[in-house]
Design a protein around this nucleic acid. Structure first.
Lengths: 131, 131
DNA sequence: TAACTGTTATATACTTAATATAACAGTTAG
DNA sequence: CTAACTGTTATATTAAGTATATAACAGTTA
């Protein structure tokens, strides 16, 4: 698990860490049951504070991505990430709207937007963990 | 221009205001050259501080959505919002990735995601300002 | 026993968000 | 001319979020 942080961006470190782990799961580089480094070793690996890692892990746990056993360590959710329910989809809908409104104003039509999304999907589906 | 704020969410007020104006432009309820309320009247209309409105306006100006004349007031960009360039598209790509990674993990396939996006596009294209 | 786990607590520094007043300079209407 | 309005700037305060630094606790595990 290679983590690459950008300290220049305004995106909080713990959010970047969450995203990279979620992307790792989406790309199947991280599979159900796979272990994650402890909060302390992850923190020292990427040069940040233990609590910043802990914050990311706690939220990932809350969202169903990982399990945290008190002494066994941290693992990717063995039963797989919970499927999207209606609440999740409503939330996704709400979050996507500003992006699409923005795109519409700037003359990006539906086809182009969809194409962009397809490219991202391809990124997650093509390489089945072979990277 | 009706503005509806949610003070419970963690989304900053000035961001919500920006989004609603951008959505208004996307829906063509706000057209090039249309006036926007002054920072003071907008602020008192929706019950927030003058500076919060000013922050939203300044960023909208910076992003090419509106023009601010020192004494003439605030208007939607008369020449239309600048079209998306490559930098904008790269940025959109980067921002969309976490959402799609998340969706992939939760078994939302490409078709379903695209359908969701299409629904949002429809929301902006159907009603050509007739609302 | 020593080294490791997640967890909790406290404290500090910095940044952002939002508010409150106040003032300035340039229109514009009465 | 005055009064009311414009955007803009300045200063200050409160609150919340981000990130860090130490320290300790309780339960494995080698």
């Amino acid at each position: 698990m290679i983590v690459q942080l950008d300290l220049e961006t305004d995106e909080p470190i713990y959010v970047q860490l969450k995203h990279q782990i979620i992307e790792g799961i989406a790309k199947k580089q991280l599979r159900p049951g796979d272990p994650l480094p402890s909060v302390r070793s992850m923190a020292s690996d990427i040069g940040i504070n233990l609590h910043t890692v802990n914050k990311a892990y706690q939220q990932l746990k809350q969202e169903g991505y990982i399990l945290i056993h008190r002494q066994k360590g941290v693992v990717i959710q063995p039963d797989g990430v919970p499927e999207a329910d209606e609440a999740y989809k409503d939330d996704l809908f709400k979050k996507l709207r500003p992006f699409i409104a923005d795109a519409v104003c700037r003359q990006i039509d539906e086809d182009e937007f969809i194409k962009c999304c397809s490219n991202i999907f391809a990124e997650f589906n093509q390489e089945e963990g072979e990277l």
